[in-house]
């Protein structure tokens, strides 16, 4: 993956396949303790502890179209390379939480990338799922929620492409303005 936003896009697909109706994406940067955390939580069907043991193995996959599953292993590899780690917590019937931790100024840490684009793509492609994105950097914070967008422009399923474009632009600017990027 070129950047962290693409990892987010990829990991969120797991949440969607797990039947989640709410997906919470968080990026937490703390330059003081030199950490960069990406957290994806969902209320999908969750995994048993045996499955959690297996998901970081590239030769494990829940799908049937192919025999390898690289989403989580690639994220783990990237985090490990940056002297970080990957944490998975899951409870069957409740949901899953995945957190990738990176050393903030590690030379191999990928950039965050086009997170606004990823968020807007996710909400427009999955209008029935509620997404939330929160970004905190050294006490400054920004967040956006599908519910807020719905309040402003109505049902996501009938949203117009022009509005999508404006929304993307708005999130990008807000991220810069609040100083989290």
């Amino acid at each position: 993956m070129k950047d962290i936003s693409l990892h987010v896009l990829d990991i969120v697909q797991n949440s969607i396949s797990a039947g989640a109706s709410f997906i919470d994406i968080g990026v937490f940067e703390d330059t003081g303790e030199n950490s960069f955390r990406v957290r994806i939580g969902d209320n999908g069907r969750g995994m048993s502890s045996e499955v959690i043991q297996k998901v970081t193995d590239p030769y494990y996959t829940s799908r049937t179209t192919r025999r390898v599953g690289l989403g989580i292993p690639l994220l783990k590899q990237n985090a490990d390379q940056c002297e970080g780690c990957l944490i998975i917590e899951s409870e069957q019937g409740k949901g899953t939480l995945i957190e990738a931790v990176f050393v903030h100024d590690h030379i191999d840490r990928p950039s965050l990338g086009d997170i606004a684009g990823v968020f807007v793509l996710l909400i427009s492609a999955n209008p029935e799922i509620r997404f939330r994105y929160a970004h905190i950097r050294d006490g400054k914070q920004y967040s956006i929620d599908t519910e807020e967008i719905k309040d402003a422009v109505g049902d996501i399923a009938d949203i117009d492409q022009d509005i999508i474009r404006y929304l993307k632009q708005m999130i990008r600017e807000n991220l810069e303005q609040t100083g989290v990027l």
Partner: peptide, 14 residues
């Protein structure tokens, strides 16, 4: 478009 309120106005305009 700086806020969701701006977005709402834009929608009405469109």
């Amino acid at each position: 478009i700086k806020s969701l309120a701006d977005l709402k106005n834009k929608k009405a305009e469109l």
